[in-house]
Design a protein around this nucleic acid. Sequence first.
DNA 1: AGCCATGCACCG
DNA 2: CGGTGCATGGCT
Length: 230
Amino acid sequence: MPATKVKEALNAMGAEVFYEKPLTSSDANGSGRIVIPKAIAEMHFPMLDNQAGSQIDAVDSMGNPYFFKFRFWINNQSRMYLLEGAAELQRRYNLRASDVMIFAHKPDKSLVVAGRPLADTDILRRPTTRKPCNGTPKREPRRLPGSIPKKPRRPSRDVQGSAHYDFNQFMAPIDGVFRFLLHSHGLDQSAVFFQSGVWTAVLDIKGEMYQAFFDSRNDALTAFNAAGYV
DNA sequence: AGCCATGCACCG
DNA sequence: CGGTGCATGGCT
């Protein structure tokens, strides 16, 4: 399924893409579980009260219906979001690891999904290097009382020279518009800085964080200062 | 300091 | 033995 066709279909539906995830091998291993980056999940998906999650109905660019389960795991003190039930979609669009799953909204806010092959224009971060995990795991394996400890087996890490992609970077709207930051990634004071190729201004307004992106340091500083900061 | 890719124990 | 949910650890 060519990317252009998919885009046409999405356009025809009036669907606006808000996230594209190059699938990892874990995403594409057939389980149908897709990890949704926390920032994306909390910006574009329904808020979840319990980790049981909720069902999300969607259609793909060909009109096929889906009934995903959107949920999260507890990971450390935080959440790790997942979309379950994507195996059929991956089958229909022939998605393998490093192909891209597309998330879009219709004007009525309903979810539209699709897939496409990885394009040259997709952002690339690290060329490779995920190190093989040598040696035995440090953690004591969990086991039932009285059961026999298992010999830990050598993990089969994926060491092939495949590229890694920056899934987590979302497209910063470089329009100088300050937007509310629900989760401020540790940014807790006003600042202007250059990050991921864009000038960023962050404002702390009575404890609430806002952020905007600019082409130049000067633009960022101007807006920053106009907001009453020095 | 925390995300997230993924390993893997546990349970059906 | 395949799926669930959590733990680990690389990486930023």
